[in-house]
């Protein structure tokens, strides 16, 4: 159970930097009086943010993530089950991985 003091300081630095993002974004927003335009932009954040996660992985990852994402989408649209979609999509990616 050893704890090196500098390691602890580095971890605390990471924790502070992370909370500055988690809490700081909203803290700044709370200080402002958001305009209708800002609210409109915020409404688009969830979708575009997740698209921005997924798109580069699909472009550079080859067939494995593409097949997995296609299966995930199909199952999610058909059944609405998040767990089913994630497991089915991962199984599809695994199948491609096994065949390669």
């Amino acid at each position: 159970m050893s704890m090196d003091p500098w390691t602890l300081v580095a971890i605390i630095g990471m924790a502070v930097a992370t909370y500055a993002c988690r809490g700081g974004g909203y803290w700044l927003f709370r200080q402002t009086n958001p305009t209708p335009l800002m609210r409109s932009v915020l409404g688009f954040i969830p979708g575009t943010l997740f698209v921005s996660y997924v798109a580069p992985a699909l472009v550079t990852g080859g067939w494995q993530p593409v097949a997995g994402a296609a299966a995930t989408l199909a199952i999610m649209i058909a059944t609405g089950s998040l767990l089913g979609a994630v497991l089915g999509g991962t199984a599809a990616a695994w199948l491609v991985y096994a065949l390669q």
Binding site: G13, A17, T18, C21, R22, G25, Y26, L28, F29, P34
Partner: peptide, 28 residues
């Protein structure tokens, strides 16, 4: 590294987690 670079570790956390700053306001 040992000893770790406090600045490098903190900066890595900040850069990767900056996206979280966009998320909070959506829950306003």
């Amino acid at each position: 590294t040992h000893p770790p670079s406090v600045l490098a570790a903190s900066l890595a956390a900040f850069v990767v987690n900056l996206r979280l700053a966009l998320m909070g306001p959506v829950l306003a």
